[in-house]
Amino acid sequence: MLLPSAAFMSHARPRAVARWLLVVAALIVAMVVVGGITRLTESGLSITRWQPISGIVPPLNDAAWQAEFDRYKRIPEYAAFNRDMTLTGFKAIFFWEYLHRLLGRVIGLAFALPLLWFAVKRQIPRGYGIRLVALLALGGLQGGIGWWMVASGLSERTDVSHLRLAVHLVTALVILAGLVWTALDLMQLHRDRLATPARLAPAALLGLGLLFVQIVWGAFTAGLNAGYAFASWPLMGDSLFPAGVPLTGTLVDAVDNPVMVQFIHRWLAFVVGAALFWLAVRATRRGSRAGFVVVGLVTLQIFLGIATLMTGVLIEVAVAHQANAALLLIATVFAAHRIGIRKAFV
Protein backbone atom coordinates (compact mmCIF):
# COMPACT_ATOMS: atom_id res chain seq x y z
CA MET A 1 0.00 0.00 0.00
CA LEU A 2 1.33 3.43 -0.95
CA LEU A 3 1.71 6.10 1.72
CA PRO A 4 -0.21 9.37 0.99
CA SER A 5 2.97 11.17 -0.15
CA ALA A 6 3.99 8.25 -2.35
CA ALA A 7 0.51 8.07 -3.82
CA PHE A 8 0.67 11.77 -4.59
CA MET A 9 4.01 11.39 -6.36
CA SER A 10 2.67 8.42 -8.33
CA HIS A 11 0.17 10.79 -9.96
CA ALA A 12 2.65 13.60 -10.50
CA ARG A 13 3.79 14.37 -14.04
CA PRO A 14 6.77 16.69 -13.67
CA ARG A 15 7.82 16.49 -17.33
CA ALA A 16 4.34 17.37 -18.59
CA VAL A 17 4.14 20.33 -16.20
CA ALA A 18 7.63 21.45 -17.25
CA ARG A 19 6.75 21.37 -20.95
CA TRP A 20 3.63 23.42 -20.30
CA LEU A 21 5.70 26.02 -18.43
CA LEU A 22 8.16 26.28 -21.32
CA VAL A 23 5.27 26.93 -23.73
CA VAL A 24 4.07 29.76 -21.48
CA ALA A 25 7.65 31.06 -21.35
CA ALA A 26 7.73 31.14 -25.17
CA LEU A 27 4.52 33.19 -25.13
CA ILE A 28 6.14 35.66 -22.74
CA VAL A 29 9.10 36.05 -25.11
CA ALA A 30 6.60 36.89 -27.86
CA MET A 31 4.95 39.34 -25.46
CA VAL A 32 8.30 41.05 -24.79
CA VAL A 33 8.91 41.41 -28.53
CA VAL A 34 5.45 42.87 -29.17
CA GLY A 35 5.91 45.15 -26.17
CA GLY A 36 9.15 46.42 -27.68
CA ILE A 37 7.44 47.14 -31.00
CA THR A 38 4.61 48.86 -29.13
CA ARG A 39 7.08 51.14 -27.39
CA LEU A 40 9.17 51.88 -30.48
CA THR A 41 6.12 52.73 -32.60
CA GLU A 42 4.74 55.00 -29.84
CA SER A 43 1.59 52.87 -29.75
CA GLY A 44 1.30 52.32 -26.02
CA LEU A 45 -1.17 55.13 -25.29
CA SER A 46 -3.54 54.40 -28.17
CA ILE A 47 -5.98 52.54 -25.88
CA THR A 48 -6.95 54.88 -23.08
CA ARG A 49 -9.15 52.56 -21.04
CA TRP A 50 -8.47 49.40 -19.06
CA GLN A 51 -11.17 46.84 -19.74
CA PRO A 52 -9.80 43.40 -18.83
CA ILE A 53 -12.89 41.55 -20.05
CA SER A 54 -14.75 43.65 -22.61
CA GLY A 55 -11.52 45.06 -24.00
CA ILE A 56 -10.84 41.78 -25.74
CA VAL A 57 -13.27 42.87 -28.47
CA PRO A 58 -11.72 45.54 -30.75
CA PRO A 59 -13.79 48.23 -32.50
CA LEU A 60 -15.97 46.48 -35.09
CA ASN A 61 -17.46 49.36 -37.06
CA ASP A 62 -16.66 52.91 -38.15
CA ALA A 63 -18.56 54.48 -35.26
CA ALA A 64 -16.66 52.41 -32.68
CA TRP A 65 -13.32 53.25 -34.31
CA GLN A 66 -14.14 56.94 -34.32
CA ALA A 67 -15.14 56.83 -30.65
CA GLU A 68 -11.85 55.15 -29.77
CA PHE A 69 -9.95 57.73 -31.80
CA ASP A 70 -11.83 60.56 -30.09
CA ARG A 71 -10.77 59.22 -26.69
CA TYR A 72 -7.16 59.18 -27.88
CA LYS A 73 -7.50 62.80 -29.01
CA ARG A 74 -8.12 63.86 -25.40
CA ILE A 75 -4.68 62.85 -24.10
CA PRO A 76 -1.55 65.06 -24.17
CA GLU A 77 0.36 62.82 -26.59
CA TYR A 78 -2.12 63.51 -29.38
CA ALA A 79 -2.13 67.26 -28.76
CA ALA A 80 1.67 67.41 -28.67
CA PHE A 81 2.65 65.10 -31.52
CA ASN A 82 -0.24 63.64 -33.50
CA ARG A 83 -2.65 66.42 -34.39
CA ASP A 84 -2.33 65.51 -38.05
CA MET A 85 -2.98 61.79 -37.44
CA THR A 86 -5.73 60.21 -39.55
CA LEU A 87 -8.05 57.43 -38.48
CA THR A 88 -5.97 55.05 -40.58
CA GLY A 89 -2.84 56.11 -38.74
CA PHE A 90 -4.60 55.61 -35.42
CA LYS A 91 -5.62 52.10 -36.41
CA ALA A 92 -1.95 51.27 -37.02
CA ILE A 93 -0.84 52.23 -33.51
CA PHE A 94 -4.00 50.75 -31.98
CA PHE A 95 -3.08 47.38 -33.52
CA TRP A 96 0.17 47.00 -31.59
CA GLU A 97 -1.25 48.01 -28.22
CA TYR A 98 -4.30 45.78 -28.78
CA LEU A 99 -2.07 42.84 -29.75
CA HIS A 100 0.09 43.44 -26.68
CA ARG A 101 -2.94 43.37 -24.37
CA LEU A 102 -4.47 40.40 -26.20
CA LEU A 103 -1.26 38.41 -25.73
CA GLY A 104 -1.42 39.24 -22.03
CA ARG A 105 -4.89 37.72 -21.82
CA VAL A 106 -3.81 34.67 -23.82
CA ILE A 107 -0.85 34.12 -21.50
CA GLY A 108 -3.11 34.44 -18.46
CA LEU A 109 -5.45 31.76 -19.78
CA ALA A 110 -2.57 29.59 -21.01
CA PHE A 111 -1.24 29.60 -17.47
CA ALA A 112 -4.37 29.52 -15.32
CA LEU A 113 -6.42 26.85 -17.12
CA PRO A 114 -3.71 24.16 -17.40
CA LEU A 115 -2.66 24.92 -13.83
CA LEU A 116 -6.21 24.18 -12.69
CA TRP A 117 -6.29 21.01 -14.78
CA PHE A 118 -2.96 19.75 -13.43
CA ALA A 119 -4.09 20.55 -9.89
CA VAL A 120 -7.41 18.70 -10.28
CA LYS A 121 -5.59 15.70 -11.74
CA ARG A 122 -3.06 15.91 -8.88
CA GLN A 123 -0.23 15.93 -11.39
CA ILE A 124 1.73 18.79 -9.83
CA PRO A 125 4.63 17.39 -7.78
CA ARG A 126 4.56 18.06 -4.07
CA GLY A 127 6.08 21.42 -3.14
CA TYR A 128 5.55 23.06 -6.52
CA GLY A 129 1.92 24.12 -6.19
CA ILE A 130 2.69 27.20 -4.09
CA ARG A 131 5.42 28.27 -6.50
CA LEU A 132 3.10 27.98 -9.49
CA VAL A 133 0.29 29.88 -7.75
CA ALA A 134 2.79 32.61 -6.85
CA LEU A 135 3.82 32.91 -10.51
CA LEU A 136 0.15 33.08 -11.51
CA ALA A 137 -0.46 35.84 -8.95
CA LEU A 138 2.56 37.75 -10.23
CA GLY A 139 1.17 37.43 -13.73
CA GLY A 140 -2.14 38.89 -12.57
CA LEU A 141 -0.28 41.72 -10.89
CA GLN A 142 1.58 42.33 -14.14
CA GLY A 143 -1.70 43.23 -15.81
CA GLY A 144 -2.31 45.88 -13.16
CA ILE A 145 1.26 47.14 -13.52
CA GLY A 146 0.72 47.48 -17.27
CA TRP A 147 -2.30 49.72 -16.75
CA TRP A 148 -0.48 51.65 -14.00
CA MET A 149 2.24 52.32 -16.56
CA VAL A 150 -0.19 53.40 -19.29
CA ALA A 151 -2.14 55.63 -16.88
CA SER A 152 1.02 57.66 -16.23
CA GLY A 153 0.85 58.99 -19.80
CA LEU A 154 -2.84 59.84 -20.04
CA SER A 155 -3.18 63.12 -18.15
CA GLU A 156 -0.09 65.31 -17.80
CA ARG A 157 2.75 63.48 -19.58
CA THR A 158 3.09 62.87 -23.31
CA ASP A 159 4.51 59.39 -22.71
CA VAL A 160 4.56 56.78 -19.98
CA SER A 161 6.83 57.01 -16.94
CA HIS A 162 10.15 55.32 -17.67
CA LEU A 163 10.21 54.13 -14.06
CA ARG A 164 6.89 52.38 -14.47
CA LEU A 165 8.03 51.01 -17.82
CA ALA A 166 11.06 49.49 -16.07
CA VAL A 167 8.83 47.88 -13.41
CA HIS A 168 6.58 46.48 -16.14
CA LEU A 169 9.46 44.99 -18.14
CA VAL A 170 11.34 43.62 -15.16
CA THR A 171 8.20 41.97 -13.77
CA ALA A 172 7.63 40.24 -17.12
CA LEU A 173 11.20 38.96 -17.15
CA VAL A 174 11.06 37.84 -13.51
CA ILE A 175 8.02 35.75 -14.44
CA LEU A 176 9.89 34.41 -17.48
CA ALA A 177 12.92 33.46 -15.37
CA GLY A 178 10.68 31.89 -12.71
CA LEU A 179 8.86 29.76 -15.28
CA VAL A 180 12.07 28.51 -16.89
CA TRP A 181 13.77 27.80 -13.54
CA THR A 182 10.71 25.90 -12.30
CA ALA A 183 10.53 23.93 -15.56
CA LEU A 184 14.18 22.94 -15.16
CA ASP A 185 13.59 21.86 -11.57
CA LEU A 186 10.69 19.72 -12.77
CA MET A 187 12.71 18.16 -15.58
CA GLN A 188 15.40 17.29 -13.04
CA LEU A 189 12.69 15.73 -10.86
CA HIS A 190 11.47 13.73 -13.85
CA ARG A 191 14.96 12.30 -14.31
CA ASP A 192 15.46 11.66 -10.60
CA ARG A 193 12.52 11.45 -8.20
CA LEU A 194 14.90 12.19 -5.32
CA ALA A 195 16.10 15.46 -6.87
CA THR A 196 15.67 18.67 -4.89
CA PRO A 197 15.22 22.16 -6.39
CA ALA A 198 18.43 23.78 -7.58
CA ARG A 199 20.00 26.46 -5.40
CA LEU A 200 21.05 29.90 -6.57
CA ALA A 201 24.85 29.72 -6.46
CA PRO A 202 26.92 32.91 -5.93
CA ALA A 203 28.08 33.01 -9.57
CA ALA A 204 24.48 32.64 -10.70
CA LEU A 205 23.25 35.31 -8.30
CA LEU A 206 25.90 37.74 -9.55
CA GLY A 207 25.25 37.03 -13.22
CA LEU A 208 21.46 37.18 -12.99
CA GLY A 209 21.55 40.20 -10.68
CA LEU A 210 23.75 42.24 -13.00
CA LEU A 211 21.72 41.16 -16.02
CA PHE A 212 18.54 42.44 -14.39
CA VAL A 213 20.25 45.73 -13.50
CA GLN A 214 21.23 46.10 -17.15
CA ILE A 215 17.65 45.33 -18.19
CA VAL A 216 16.41 48.07 -15.85
CA TRP A 217 18.72 50.60 -17.49
CA GLY A 218 17.66 49.30 -20.88
CA ALA A 219 14.07 50.11 -19.91
CA PHE A 220 15.18 53.57 -18.74
CA THR A 221 16.93 54.04 -22.09
CA ALA A 222 13.76 53.11 -23.97
CA GLY A 223 11.44 55.13 -21.73
CA LEU A 224 13.54 58.29 -21.93
CA ASN A 225 14.31 57.82 -25.64
CA ALA A 226 17.92 57.95 -24.49
CA GLY A 227 19.04 55.81 -27.40
CA TYR A 228 18.60 58.86 -29.63
CA ALA A 229 20.92 61.01 -27.53
CA PHE A 230 24.13 59.89 -29.27
CA ALA A 231 24.29 57.67 -32.34
CA SER A 232 28.03 56.99 -32.11
CA TRP A 233 30.21 54.38 -30.44
CA PRO A 234 32.49 54.01 -28.49
CA LEU A 235 32.54 57.79 -28.04
CA MET A 236 29.50 59.90 -27.32
CA GLY A 237 30.14 62.55 -29.92
CA ASP A 238 33.79 63.49 -29.56
CA SER A 239 34.45 62.19 -26.06
CA LEU A 240 33.82 59.30 -23.73
CA PHE A 241 31.24 61.39 -21.91
CA PRO A 242 30.08 64.62 -23.56
CA ALA A 243 30.93 67.96 -21.99
CA GLY A 244 28.25 70.47 -21.12
CA VAL A 245 25.61 67.96 -20.06
CA PRO A 246 23.64 69.48 -17.17
CA LEU A 247 24.02 67.21 -14.15
CA THR A 248 22.77 67.52 -10.60
CA GLY A 249 25.59 65.45 -9.12
CA THR A 250 23.09 63.10 -7.49
CA LEU A 251 21.78 59.63 -8.21
CA VAL A 252 18.86 61.27 -10.00
CA ASP A 253 21.17 61.74 -12.99
CA ALA A 254 21.59 57.98 -13.32
CA VAL A 255 17.84 57.50 -13.54
CA ASP A 256 16.41 60.62 -15.18
CA ASN A 257 19.15 62.12 -17.37
CA PRO A 258 18.98 60.54 -20.87
CA VAL A 259 22.68 61.08 -21.60
CA MET A 260 23.81 59.55 -18.30
CA VAL A 261 21.32 56.69 -18.71
CA GLN A 262 22.71 55.86 -22.15
CA PHE A 263 26.27 56.10 -20.80
CA ILE A 264 25.52 53.65 -17.99
CA HIS A 265 23.65 51.25 -20.25
CA ARG A 266 26.38 51.13 -22.90
CA TRP A 267 29.28 50.48 -20.49
CA LEU A 268 27.50 48.36 -17.89
CA ALA A 269 27.01 45.86 -20.72
CA PHE A 270 30.68 44.87 -20.51
CA VAL A 271 30.53 44.36 -16.74
CA VAL A 272 27.49 42.16 -17.21
CA GLY A 273 29.25 40.34 -20.04
CA ALA A 274 32.22 39.52 -17.80
CA ALA A 275 29.95 38.17 -15.05
CA LEU A 276 28.01 36.05 -17.53
CA PHE A 277 31.24 34.74 -19.04
CA TRP A 278 32.28 33.57 -15.58
CA LEU A 279 28.90 31.93 -15.09
CA ALA A 280 29.21 30.31 -18.53
CA VAL A 281 32.61 28.84 -17.64
CA ARG A 282 31.19 27.40 -14.41
CA ALA A 283 28.24 25.87 -16.27
CA THR A 284 30.48 24.41 -18.97
CA ARG A 285 32.64 22.75 -16.33
CA ARG A 286 29.46 21.12 -15.02
CA GLY A 287 28.83 19.66 -18.48
CA SER A 288 26.20 22.15 -19.67
CA ARG A 289 26.13 23.49 -23.21
CA ALA A 290 24.18 26.49 -21.94
CA GLY A 291 27.49 28.19 -21.19
CA PHE A 292 28.35 28.33 -24.88
CA VAL A 293 24.91 29.73 -25.66
CA VAL A 294 25.29 32.42 -22.99
CA VAL A 295 28.64 33.54 -24.44
CA GLY A 296 27.21 33.65 -27.95
CA LEU A 297 24.08 35.54 -26.96
CA VAL A 298 25.83 38.08 -24.73
CA THR A 299 28.28 38.82 -27.57
CA LEU A 300 25.39 39.22 -29.99
CA GLN A 301 23.56 41.41 -27.48
CA ILE A 302 26.48 43.83 -27.23
CA PHE A 303 26.74 44.07 -31.01
CA LEU A 304 22.98 44.59 -31.32
CA GLY A 305 23.15 47.33 -28.69
CA ILE A 306 25.90 49.12 -30.61
CA ALA A 307 23.99 48.66 -33.86
CA THR A 308 20.84 50.07 -32.25
CA LEU A 309 22.74 53.25 -31.37
CA MET A 310 24.55 53.62 -34.66
CA THR A 311 21.42 53.08 -36.78
CA GLY A 312 19.56 55.79 -34.87
CA VAL A 313 17.38 53.19 -33.12
CA LEU A 314 16.24 51.47 -36.30
CA ILE A 315 13.14 49.60 -35.19
CA GLU A 316 14.15 46.20 -36.59
CA VAL A 317 17.53 46.34 -34.84
CA ALA A 318 16.09 47.67 -31.59
CA VAL A 319 13.44 44.93 -31.49
CA ALA A 320 16.11 42.30 -32.16
CA HIS A 321 18.09 43.77 -29.25
CA GLN A 322 15.12 43.40 -26.90
CA ALA A 323 14.21 39.91 -28.15
CA ASN A 324 17.80 38.75 -27.72
CA ALA A 325 17.77 40.09 -24.15
CA ALA A 326 14.90 37.73 -23.35
CA LEU A 327 16.73 34.81 -24.98
CA LEU A 328 19.91 35.71 -23.09
CA LEU A 329 17.97 35.68 -19.84
CA ILE A 330 16.65 32.19 -20.62
CA ALA A 331 20.13 30.90 -21.46
CA THR A 332 21.48 32.48 -18.27
CA VAL A 333 18.79 30.74 -16.23
CA PHE A 334 19.76 27.43 -17.83
CA ALA A 335 23.43 28.00 -16.92
CA ALA A 336 22.59 29.23 -13.42
CA HIS A 337 20.33 26.25 -12.81
CA ARG A 338 22.99 23.81 -13.94
CA ILE A 339 25.56 24.99 -11.41
CA GLY A 340 22.91 25.00 -8.68
CA ILE A 341 21.86 21.36 -9.01
CA ARG A 342 22.45 19.38 -5.85
CA LYS A 343 22.81 15.63 -5.94
CA ALA A 344 20.30 13.75 -3.84
CA PHE A 345 21.60 11.64 -0.97
CA VAL A 346 20.18 8.17 -0.77
Rank of each mutant, 00 (worst) to 15 (best):
residue 270 F to M: 11
residue 186 L to C: 12
residue 338 R to A: 14
residue 292 F to L: 15
residue 11 H to T: 14
residue 80 A to K: 15
residue 71 R to E: 15
residue 58 P to Y: 02
residue 275 A to Q: 12
residue 143 G to P: 12
residue 163 L to T: 08
residue 237 G to P: 02
residue 43 S to W: 00
residue 58 P to L: 01
residue 57 V to T: 14
residue 5 S to P: 07
residue 240 L to K: 12
residue 307 A to Q: 11
residue 241 F to V: 09
residue 187 M to F: 14
residue 145 I to F: 05
residue 225 N to E: 12
residue 198 A to H: 08
residue 289 R to Q: 05
residue 208 L to E: 00
residue 94 F to V: 02
residue 262 Q to K: 04
residue 288 S to N: 05
residue 150 V to G: 00
residue 135 L to E: 07
residue 165 L to T: 04
residue 202 P to S: 11
residue 155 S to I: 15
residue 284 T to P: 03
residue 70 D to W: 05
residue 109 L to P: 10
residue 167 V to P: 06
residue 280 A to M: 13
residue 139 G to Y: 04
residue 4 P to T: 02
residue 204 A to I: 04
residue 198 A to G: 08
residue 3 L to Q: 08
residue 96 W to L: 09
residue 279 L to H: 09
residue 197 P to H: 09
residue 323 A to T: 10
residue 256 D to R: 14
residue 346 V to Y: 04
residue 182 T to R: 01
residue 18 A to Q: 03
residue 54 S to V: 06
residue 228 Y to C: 06
residue 201 A to K: 14
residue 145 I to G: 01
residue 106 V to Y: 09
residue 166 A to H: 02
residue 8 F to W: 15
residue 44 G to M: 01
residue 327 L to E: 05
residue 156 E to D: 13
residue 60 L to A: 15
residue 226 A to T: 11
residue 343 K to S: 15
residue 34 V to E: 01
residue 344 A to K: 03
residue 193 R to G: 14
residue 90 F to Q: 00
residue 168 H to I: 10
residue 129 G to N: 04
residue 69 F to M: 13
residue 107 I to L: 12
residue 177 A to W: 05
residue 254 A to F: 12
residue 175 I to C: 10
residue 7 A to E: 07
residue 292 F to I: 13
residue 180 V to E: 07
residue 73 K to L: 08
residue 145 I to M: 13
residue 325 A to T: 10
residue 188 Q to P: 06
residue 291 G to C: 02
residue 237 G to Y: 02
residue 303 F to T: 10
residue 142 Q to C: 15
residue 69 F to L: 14
residue 203 A to M: 12
residue 222 A to L: 13
residue 16 A to F: 07
residue 111 F to P: 03
residue 27 L to D: 10
residue 288 S to E: 11
residue 340 G to S: 10
residue 189 L to Q: 05
residue 73 K to F: 11
residue 222 A to R: 02
residue 174 V to Q: 02
residue 279 L to S: 09
residue 281 V to E: 13
residue 88 T to F: 13
residue 190 H to A: 15
residue 336 A to V: 09
residue 33 V to H: 01
residue 265 H to L: 06
residue 193 R to K: 15
residue 161 S to V: 04
residue 198 A to K: 09
residue 15 R to Q: 08
residue 315 I to N: 12
residue 249 G to R: 03
residue 259 V to G: 01
residue 314 L to V: 04
residue 235 L to R: 15
residue 119 A to D: 07
